[in-house]
Design a protein around this nucleic acid. Structure first.
Length: 424
RNA sequence: GGAGGGAUGGGUGAGUGGCUGAAACCACCAGUUUGCUAAACUGGCGUGCGGGCAACCGUACCGCGGGUUCGAAUCCCGCUCUCUCCGCCA
């Protein structure tokens, strides 16, 4: 979330950002500032009262010690009203703090100045068009769900039997290809300086709130009521929460971490178009990269992460393009997001395979993630993350674009993991 | 799942009702001394919030939440986590 201080100092910028996001609620800013002013007023009153009360308690202690029992008992009687007053003030202050928190949680991140105006994904800016010619397939080429069946790589019906729609079963070389992609992505990330983590796939509510999944995306996560835990929708949640409630020394920065996890998404309300095959799943695999950076470095880090993701797509030989998300499509927590899409020649569609974002202080404020700078002042850090990469649509594109009469051609960089060149 | 022990600042760890935001030591930072390094010595060294240009002042925080008390790290209740033992188990 944004801090009240930031909102107060950058009102015009925040207003402009809200309108870019089509978030028409100027009233919210006003409410936040007013509530914060009230909070300060109650805080001052309470502190004054507690200060007096502490002083009297000390005097009573001295009187008892010096044997002036009567005088001490007199003073004890006087403290009764103070106690009542401070109890009332404490409750009021607590209520106001909760109200302020609720208001701040409703405020989306401040969009970066470069974020284009727009209402939906159709208005996203093509930041980098596909550098190569789009592949054209011969007559009779198949979409990936038919290829998966033809080569016995994925069994969607079996997954539906075991669990339900959107939980595919990978089989034989299909499973191997998954493992090859995971290993390739992990190895590439390690070479780029990211430390690998294996993290829990279930998280508590504090973690989900820390990265912004709660309360904004409550309905999109699987929830285990019995144990009050959430299945992770992305490794971003456990990875970033490693640094929840942490005060870092400047010397330990930058932080670069990554991990492979399955991801679980309810995808509520997204039934309809383009859900066939691997296009949209409830469970899928992904390697995620996360960085924690000093504020003045975070946009360089965003660039670095985009370069890394782009290099993966180049090495896999897949046609891709890069989008800069418009205000209307930008997620609640993000300041600037680049989406990476691969082109499926068989479906004649672009498929999103990565989303790389700078959250600036939005997550760090919720996480209480700060560092001590050279002047020994505590400053809020910036967090970033990106998929590098999500597997299903990569797999779909490889199957569709690399289909030949002899079988599916395996990209060079994956051949060492597969031990072969073609799936036939 | 059952029984018992524990949770204090970056770390070890003292502290059973007021003089404790918290000893001591280690680590860390600055300085003095010394060919260099090391050692020794001196000083500094938690976080949030409110006030203040600032120095600083006030307030809260000793796992979390309540309670007792004029006053709680310290006493009482609930919870969480952790360790040991037993049971079950990949």
């Amino acid at each position: 979330m944004l801090s009240v201080q930031f909102i107060k100092e950058n009102i015009e910028q925040v207003k402009e950002s809200l309108s870019k996001r089509n978030f028409a609620n100027d009233h919210l800013i006003k409410q936040i500032i007013e509530t914060d002013d009230q909070r300060k007023s109650f805080k001052s009153q309470l502190d004054d009262l507690l200060s007096k009360s502490n002083r009297i308690s000390k005097e009573i202690g001295m009187l008892f010690k010096s044997g002036q029992i009567d005088k001490a008992n007199e003073m004890k009687a006087d403290t009764a009203t103070m106690k009542e007053q401070s109890a009332v003030l404490k409750t009021q202050l607590g209520d106001i703090e909760v109200a302020l928190e609720q208001l701040l949680l409703q405020m989306p991140n401040c969009a970066h100045p470069s974020v284009p105006v727009g209402k939906s994904d159709e208005d996203n800016e093509v930041f980098k068009p596909c550098p190569t010619a789009l592949p054209e397939l011969s007559e009779g080429s198949l979409p990936h769900w038919e290829l998966a069946q033809k080569y016995d790589l994925i069994d969607f019906e079996l997954g539906a039997k075991i669990t339900g729609a959107g939980f595919p079963v990978y089989k034989g070389e299909g499973a191997m290809l998954q493992r090859a992609l995971i290993n390739f992505f992990l190895d590439e990330a390690r070479q780029a300086g990211y430390i690998e983590y294996m993290v829990p796939h279930l998280v508590n509510a504090d973690s989900a709130r820390g990265t912004g999944q709660l309360p904004d995306k409550d309905g999109q996560m699987y929830y285990m009521e019995r144990d009050d835990l959430y299945l992770i929708p992305t490794a971003e949640v456990p990875l970033t929460n490693i640094y929840r409630d942490v005060l870092l020394q400047e010397s330990s920065l930058p932080i670069k971490l990554m991990g492979y996890t399955p991801c679980f998404r309810r995808e509520a309300g997204s039934y309809g178009a383009h859900v066939r095959g691997l296009n949209r799943l409830h469970q899928f695999d992904k390697v995620e990269i996360v960085q924690v950076r000093k504020p003045d470095e975070s946009y360089d880090a965003l660039q670095e992460m985009c370069d890394h993701v782009e290099s993966l797509l180049v090495k896999l030989g897949l046609p891709y393009r890069i989008l800069r998300l418009c205000g209307g499509d930008l997620s609640f927590a993000s300041a600037l997001t680049f989406d990476f899409e691969t082109y499926s020649a068989a479906q004649k569609r672009w498929l999103e395979v990565s989303s790389v974002s700078n959250f600036e202080t939005f997550q760090a404020n919720r996480l209480k993630l700060r560092y001590k700078d050279i002047d020994k002042r505590n400053k809020t850090l910036h967090t970033l993350n990106g998929s590098a990469l999500a597997l299903p649509r990569i797999l779909a594109t490889i199957l569709e674009n690399n289909q030949t009469e002899k079988g599916i051609f395996i990209p060079d960089v994956l051949q060492k993991y597969m031990g072969k060149e073609v799936i036939s």
